[in-house]
Amino acid sequence: MFIRSDQLDQLEKCDGVRYIKVITGVRRCGKTILLRQVKDSLRRCGVANNQIHFFNFSQLHRQQLADWQSLINLISKKLIENKVNYLFLDELEQLDHVPAFLQEIIKHQNISLYITATSRSFLARLAPLQSQLVIIPVLPLSFAEFCQHHRQPANEHTLYQYLNVGGFPFAQDVHDQLTRENYLDGVFNTTLVNGFAKHGTLCNPFLTKQLAIFVAGQLGLPINASRAVSGLKKIGVPASSKTLSTYLTLLADTYLFYPCHELDLTTNRVKPTNAKYYPVDPSLRNYLTNQKGVLSQANLEALLFIELVRRGYSVYANKRFTFIADRHQQRTYIQFSYSIRNQHEYDQAIGSLRSLPVNCQKQLIVLRVADILSQDPAVPMSLLTDWLIENQSV
């Protein structure tokens, strides 16, 4: 069981009864495992078992979920007076009346509350409690965690392995490709069925999967519903723009894909349409396209984007730069190049970065680079394999 040390550190910093800790991310990325690791940590610190309470809402019947007042009573009876109670609510979004339920729970002054969720829309439902929330995003294992788990060096060979195995925890010790594909098929299909059920939308699994396949094959290219309609029509799959727009939203809401919108630097406004979509994990792209993960510009750009998201950046696309990344009121302009073989290619790669004001944060990231470069000291350069394992805590 891989220890998610970064997330555990974040949870430890906000421990206490004051905050509601919300652990969110795509299905099977390790949220429940993280809760168990928190429980183990509490026990090691001397917290008694009767102070730790775990409820998995996905295992409750529909009737139980509808009667949330009875759930409140059940939980209240288990609480130990005059001691801090640690309450873990796994997959709470199964419940319809979440804000009212949580408001009743937090009336107890001695509860440290942890909950998990698998959709962005669930966070919107928690808006009435926004001032009390701490959001802890969890993604599949990063390249750095992959290297650590498999005790491999951070080099191109290991990066190729990561692009093919991916970061879902279960997949790390599965050596049979068919078993891994069946597992990803379960992750994808369960995510869609649950996602449609929560949205109250009629489910067309075939069309949704065809859309996901199309999106996975368009890495690095802007996509909107009209373009998706045109792309699917070419392979004989008719659909309306309205339907595909709904399904695109669902793919993003369930964290299967992350949208990257274009930022207009002239107005500093985000364009609402024509976003690029990146899969949450490289194995998901392989599963959908039925292709191996290769060391290509598009695959590595997707990996770079997800790593920026993992490090807490708000990431945007732009015609002049690979990415523009904002974090802690600091903006970084990033250019990614697969290979730089000579001085001319280097100068081309940093041309847009050089044109920025001196005080701007700039970063050139490359997979391969020649040794003969005369580098510009104003533009830091990193090898992708080194950058991916840098300690960049949120």
Rank of each mutant, 00 (worst) to 15 (best):
His344Pro: 00
Tyr247Cys: 11
Pro377Cys: 03
Thr158Ser: 08
Phe206Thr: 14
Gln218Thr: 09
Val84Gly: 01
Pro279Asn: 04
Val280Tyr: 03
Asn342Asp: 14
Leu356Val: 09
Thr208Asn: 07
Thr24Trp: 04
Leu251Trp: 08
Leu373Glu: 06
Thr116His: 13
Asn182Glu: 00
Lys209Arg: 15
Phe57Ile: 12
Gln130Cys: 08
Ser5Asn: 10
Glu390Arg: 09
Cys45Asp: 15
His150Pro: 04
Ala349Phe: 08
Ala197Cys: 09
Leu265Lys: 01
Arg27Asp: 11
Leu87Arg: 00
Asp15Ala: 09
Asp40Cys: 12
Tyr338Leu: 13
Leu71His: 04
Thr266Cys: 05
Ala171Lys: 01
Asn299Met: 08
Ser393Cys: 03
Val379Pro: 06
Val229Trp: 02
Asn204Tyr: 13
Leu184Arg: 00
Leu388Asp: 02
Trp387Thr: 06
Gln103Glu: 14
Val47Thr: 10
Arg320Phe: 11
Ala298Trp: 02
Ala144Phe: 07
Leu388Thr: 00
Gln103Leu: 06
Ala127Leu: 12
Arg18Ala: 04
Glu390Val: 05
Asn155Pro: 06
Pro259Met: 00
Thr118His: 10
Gly46Arg: 04
Asp347Pro: 05
His261Asp: 11
Ser142Cys: 03
Asn110Glu: 11
Val309Ile: 14
Lys233Tyr: 13
Arg354Pro: 05
Thr254Ala: 14
Gly166Trp: 06
Cys203Arg: 10
Val366Asn: 06
Gly200Val: 05
